[in-house]
């Protein structure tokens, strides 16, 4: 593996909601009304090499979107750092971001919400590069046309408004807008999730072409395991704000190590007939406000033991370039005293 360009080091992100006046008044009597903290990310470390596409997979509340936003510099991490070529992606001042790299660009899920309906798409594309003087002003028009063509649209579409495009075309525009900033790293947050299957294939093909032509490095955030396997080199599985498994895509799909990963794969419906029982994961996804003790997955895990209830598993090596956070890979699930020696 070549040297990583993007480093996510021990990143945690907490969101705290202060109680409203009514809650505080009620709290005076009931003893409640305290600030509520959500641990959206807890101690996540990842490295991404030049030209690599890293998939981030998990269910609601696992922190995958928060991670994407921290990497793109939209959120400042509560702890830890995100650096690109050893420079922070965002400079913070008093907890707020005051300067942001243009080198990380984000593509969002819903192209109906992420494009300004009152701006011609050419203007939308030109806004960032013009402001940051990435492209000389006299070249902007030509460059925008070129970008539209690169994402499979016609250059003349620069004069159209978003409502004149279909969903798939809008997502192409959103990709063009990200590329207009000439970024080194793209963060795609569920970028194909809202598209129809036939359109999804078109956009995935476009992404793979662009990746090959431009040598893009990307974080590909998705809940769709089959899409992730198709486009990603390595995959990180997250659960309740923590990284639980990280492995090259082919190895992960062939041989998942973490019980959550295994269960997740088993519960995904696959195309193909023959009356298959769904092997569902038992129970609910716990709330990140009040995560379970020890390993967050233990209440749902078929292999959990006493140790899992008390001790948070650390990430340990599970083969070359693979890590997993599970006691099974770190001395077993029996009570801690037996392992301590």
């Amino acid at each position: 593996m070549t040297d990583p360009i993007l480093k996510i080091e021990h990143v945690s992100k907490r969101f705290t909601r202060m109680p409203g006046l009514a809650e505080r008044l009620v709290g005076k009597v009931t003893g409640g009304g305290k600030p509520v903290t959500v641990h959206a990310l807890t101690d996540v470390s990842l490295e991404v090499s030049q030209g690599e596409v890293l998939g981030i997979v998990g269910e609601s509340g696992c922190g995958k979107s928060t991670l994407g936003r921290v990497v793109a510099g939209i959120y400042a991490p509560s702890d830890g750092s995100v650096t690109l070529h050893d420079k922070p992606v965002a400079r913070t001042h008093g907890g707020n971001i005051d300067k942001l790299t243009t080198q990380v660009q984000m593509i969002h899920q819903d192209p109906f919400a992420s494009l300004n309906p009152r701006m011609k798409v050419g203007e939308t594309l030109a806004e960032g590069p013009r402001y940051h003087k990435i492209i000389p002003a006299r070249d902007v028009q030509a460059r925008m046309r070129e970008l539209l063509e690169k994402v499979g649209l016609e250059g003349a579409y620069a004069d159209r408004f978003p409502h004149q495009f279909s969903g798939g075309q809008r997502q192409r525009v959103a990709i063009a807008r990200a590329l207009a900033m000439e970024p080194e790293v793209l963060v795609l947050d569920e970028a194909v999730a809202s598209l129809d299957v036939s359109i999804q294939a078109q956009v995935l093909n476009l992404f793979m072409d662009l990746r090959r032509d431009l040598g893009l490095t990307a974080l590909f955030i998705s809940h769709d395991l089959s899409v992730v396997r198709h486009v990603c080199d390595r995959v990180a599985i997250m659960y309740l704000g923590r990284l639980v498994e990280l492995a090259p895509a082919d190895e992960l799909y062939a041989d998942p190590k973490h019980p959550y990963t295994t269960a997740l794969f088993a519960s995904v419906p696959t195309v193909g007939t023959g009356k298959r029982r769904f092997e569902a994961i038992k129970g609910e996804i716990p709330s990140p406000i009040n995560p379970p003790s020890g390993c967050a997955f233990h209440p749902r895990c078929p292999l959990a033991g006493p140790r899992c209830r008390v001790e948070v598993p650390r990430l340990t090596d599970a083969g070359t370039a693979r890590t997993v956070a599970c006691h099974l890979n770190d001395g077993g699930v029996d009570a801690k005293s037996e392992v301590a020696a």
Binding site: V197, S198, Q200, A201, Q202, L204, N205, M208, S226, V227, R229, H230, V231, A249, D250, T270, V271
Partner: peptide
């Protein structure tokens, strides 16, 4: 066009 039925990284029929 479903990715699961194809070799990873290959162009999807669209």
């Amino acid at each position: 066009s479903i990715p699961a039925l194809h070799e990873p990284g290959k162009h999807l029929p669209q």
